[in-house]
Nucleic acid binder design. Structure first.
Lengths: 324, 324
DNA sequence: TTGTAGGCGTTATCAA
DNA sequence: TTGATAACGCCTACAA
């Protein structure tokens, strides 16, 4: 395979000049540049990235560690990839499926300089393990974590969930049921806190209805529709604040199949503003995942290049549609 | 960051000896080895992979290009990763989401020697584009394609589909409806061919019932359940051969919700033997995706190291469960 | 059993 | 505007 010296010889210049042409350095005369470029084109030459990486101490490759590749993680990855590419970085994706080994691989690649930085969407190993690797390169995360060495693009769910609750209140709903996601996560804790503060503020009974936990699938939503239908008419809630759009979608469509009229029989608010909420005209809470991705990239760039570009302020937004 | 020379100096040996220790070469005396290892451990040293790659002309990194990351593609990726890791290779995943650019990136990384090889699960660019890149390193694919430079681990659907049809026949079903997947793909063509040959063999009317095309989701399956329920009793098919387990699952569960009894009212056969089919006790066609992944890896190894290990023979298998 | 030295393919510094 | 040349960090004949 052709290397820079071969190009140099064929173009009758030194390899330094070829390098200048490749990297668009100034102070190359137009005739020389053309002559060199011609040889490059003719031989279909591209610089060997291993050599470039070795010399520069950078691979221009960033790893993304993700637990899976579902809707919102996928959106993040897509957004991040876009920003990264605009800045000349490539992305290598590591789907762990919960396997520690797969995550360690990525971390080791960082240590061994095959990766310049790492985005850890949802971790598998202990934070202490991940923190240990921050000395080899910047690592940012999507999860909520309070470790100085691991910056996060996490968003506090309290504000977002309050938005949903206040909206329901303003619309006249008073009998709200909460369907929370993962019990373990801090997001759920924040949402619970938001609900309690909300009840206190408006003097509502926080325990008037059961709370659901650990639910986020379409099927779970469908079951909740049945749960509602089977209750006494007088004892039915009039609104659901859901953990995800998917769950809300399941609830909504199954309820309609059962002849329930939304939003007059009850209201539904989703979370995430995914495509499905758009499709079903579902009121939801928008979540600037794209801006999160951009922030993650800015953080990495700042760390890598010693810059200090400012991070976007992130805010949830209510998207009012037909289910409330 | 520490490099091999620093280790050498601290251990009082030459860098060559350090290299020998790192790579487990023979002819290093035990005392020396221990002394060197000690310094390596103390300084938390690991060789810089860029330097190793440059020297060896290999990165030990294989790229996988995938359109998305759903169930069966995910299984393939997982299997492939396992085999690759056992042989000291790491994996970089590229999810294209149908974007040509993302695929080209991976191809360019191959060209520029950042990747040793590429597995192209489902391509985005024209085959001619991909073929062009085979001169930079081995590329194997999961799709059916007849290009010498691009080996494939594709499996002929004819045999698998015939398996399903013969099974239904043996069980006494005669009014079979086919639900095919993507119209564009060659898999569907093969399945259609299988069905026609099957009808001919048993003297059945291939056009007795409508054929469904381009369906593979759970929701599509649910709709087909309604389609069946709304037909005249006398004009109902007694079996469905489905494009995927997901579709079959949707059909099965919705049918049961409508009070249909499977397999006495009608039979259902899925395809792929995914977890969901196991869960629902669904008869399906097993598909050795793990062996395909291993084959893909063997092909790459053979190409990379000039070997000639033999490829596994791949065969569909009927998994008889409760829906037929 | 160990060390010396050259080279993998680039880039960047310094002269010219 | 161009060309030598020394790194980048590692591996591997070849010598000792």
């Amino acid at each position: 395979m052709a290397n820079i010296h071969e190009i140099a010889k064929l173009a009758g210049v030194s390899s330094a000049t070829v390098s200048r042409v490749i990297n668009n350095h100034p102070y190359v005369s137009e005739p020389t540049r053309q002559r060199v470029q011609e040889v490059i084109d003719r031989l279909d030459y591209v610089p060997n990235l291993n050599a470039v990486s070795l010399k520069k101490g950078m691979t221009k490759l960033i790893g993304i560690i993700s637990l899976s590749f579902n809707d919102s993680l996928g959106l993040f990855v897509r957004g991040f990839t876009m920003y990264a590419q605009e800045h000349g970085f490539n992305i290598a994706l590591f789907i762990t499926n919960g396997e520690k080994g797969r995550e360690l691989e990525a971390l080791e690649m960082l240590r061994r300089k095959q990766l310049d930085a790492l985005v850890c969407m949802i971790r598998v190993n202990e934070w202490s393990v991940i923190e240990h690797y921050t000395k080899y390169g910047p690592i940012v995360t999507w999860q909520r974590v309070n470790i100085e060495a691991i910056p996060s693009v996490f968003m506090d769910q309290y504000q977002g969930y309050t938005l949903a609750l206040e909206h329901l209140y303003a619309r006249g709903y008073r009998k709200i049921v909460n369907v929370y996601g993962s019990m373990r996560g801090l997001n759920t804790k924040e949402r619970i806190r938001a609900y309690h503060d909300f009840c206190e503020k408006y003097d509502l009974d926080a325990e008037a209805f059961p709370h659901f936990y650990d639910l986020n699938s379409i099927e779970a939503g469908e079951q909740i529709a049945h749960w509602w239908a089977e209750r006494e008419q007088t004892d039915r809630p009039d609104a659901f604040a859901c953990s995800t759009d998917y769950l809300a979608a399941g609830l909504l469509t199954e309820a309609r199949r059962l002849g329930v009229s939304v939003p007059s029989d009850f209201a539904v608010v989703g979370f995430d503003n995914t495509e499905i909420s758009h499709l079903l005209d579902l009121t939801t809470i928008h979540y600037p995942i794209d801006k999160q991705a951009e922030n993650a990239f800015i953080m990495i760039c700042n760390a890598l290049e010693g810059l200090d570009e400012t991070i976007h302020h992130l805010e949830f937004k209510l998207v009012e549609r037909a289910t409330t």
